[in-house]
Design a protein around this nucleic acid. Structure first.
Lengths: 222, 222
DNA sequence: CCGTGTGAAGCTGTTCACAGCT
DNA sequence: AGCTGTGAACAGCTTCACACGG
């Protein structure tokens, strides 16, 4: 939690933050292999990243390395956990108990490393009351404001159909949620004070389709 | 399929391609509302995009608009479908019949608009033979080369744990697959001739966590 | 006269290359 | 001697603003 400079968050790119998550994964793996010290160079080669970029990304938040030596893996991991705010538990509500919503509710990636799905809602009376693998029961989306308050929920995940997404987005914001992950293929509008991240899974398939159509041989850029 | 210029695909950014998918969604919605003609300005305002960017993105592929008027919605949609290669059916194999893999296999977004999951594999004998909602049965991952050939599969989706991902990636490539969507949190290496797109769902939660931690009030940038 | 298509400008993100610290 | 941290150069992406065509 000791950052060298208190740079305004808005000045740090989302790309940088995403890379911090990746660095964190890499460090976790290195620790499993009992590696204690690593240079940006080695880290870059091992996980095919760019060493200058690693150093620059980290430099936004402090001086974590030792010149002439490199970084202490455990220490750097700890710093990244703090920067990303993963030391504190984040309770999540999933709205939309369809296929995807149900799957994400018991997806290990969404129930580990600081995150925990504590509620799954739907507006469809047919779905309310249904048990979900993992132990949760689908609750009435109309109860969102209560749920958010009582279970101190920080993050909302939207997995309803596109047509219902804007309404759910508004409801989540009105219920007091500050950060929302939207899986619906809809252009949501209207709450600049809330952090909204759109993830459209189908876009990725369409991207691949584009490359299959236009490129016989093509370098992999990810 | 009549593109003004045959620009090398590599010169077009992934960002542009992703936006084309978004424009396609928007046009589909407009058609539902029986709107036949739309200007880049209107399109931008309606879906909070940038009008100059819309025009520039489209201009890579041809001149689809009418000066002084705008674009014909149906025509432009058709162009986008062709550009993205969505008129041809794309058969998909999902490797990893865990939570996420199973969910994606019957996820509507992965079984519509030109895409169709035609096989789900796993190496775990416990999972092989299990039925999946939607009609598929989990098959042995060892049969990948045969499956890919017989069902003429174009796209592979990796939903195995991180530790197994590199092996599956290699196997998919060796089986002759040209485009791969990887959901495992692993830095895959080694096949520059194949198009690889990484999607890490947890990164998105971590991004939200970062903003919750550092920003009390913050503009939504997506 | 209006909106597209597009050079040019401006901005953001990445990579280079080296000074400075250990 | 070696690697970090960082200004400066470079590359890529977005936005502006207007000439041109309908």
């Amino acid at each position: 939690m000791t950052f060298k400079r208190y740079i305004p968050v808005e000045s740090i790119s989302e790309l940088t933050i995403n890379r911090l998550s990746i660095y964190l994964r890499c460090l976790q793996q290195l620790e499993k292999e009992n590696i204690t010290t690593i240079s940006s160079q080695e880290l870059a080669e091992r996980f095919h990243l760019n060493s200058a970029q690693i150093r620059k990304d980290l430099a936004y938040f402090g001086e974590f390395g030792i010149r002439g030596v490199g970084y202490n893996a455990a220490q750097l991991r700890e710093h990244l956990v703090n920067i990303l705010g993963l030391s504190e538990e984040r309770r999540v509500v999933v709205v939309g108990a369809g296929n995807l919503g149900t799957a994400l509710s018991h997806f290990s990636g969404f129930n580990s490393g600081g995150f925990k799905i504590v509620a799954v809602c739907d507006a469809d009376p047919q779905k309310i009351g249904k048990r979900i693998p993992g132990g949760l029961t689908v609750e009435d989306a109309a109860l969102l404001p209560t749920l958010v308050k009582e279970r101190r929920i920080h993050i909302g995940v939207i997995t309803v159909p596109a047509a219902a997404a804007q309404q759910v987005f508004d409801d989540l914001v009105n219920a007091g949620i500050q950060a929302i992950l939207n899986f619906a293929p809809a252009q949501l509008k209207g709450h600049p004070e809330v952090k909204l991240k759109n993830v459209d899974l189908k876009i990725n398939l369409e991207l691949l389709s584009f490359f299959l159509t236009h490129a016989a041989r093509l370098a992999s850029i990810t």
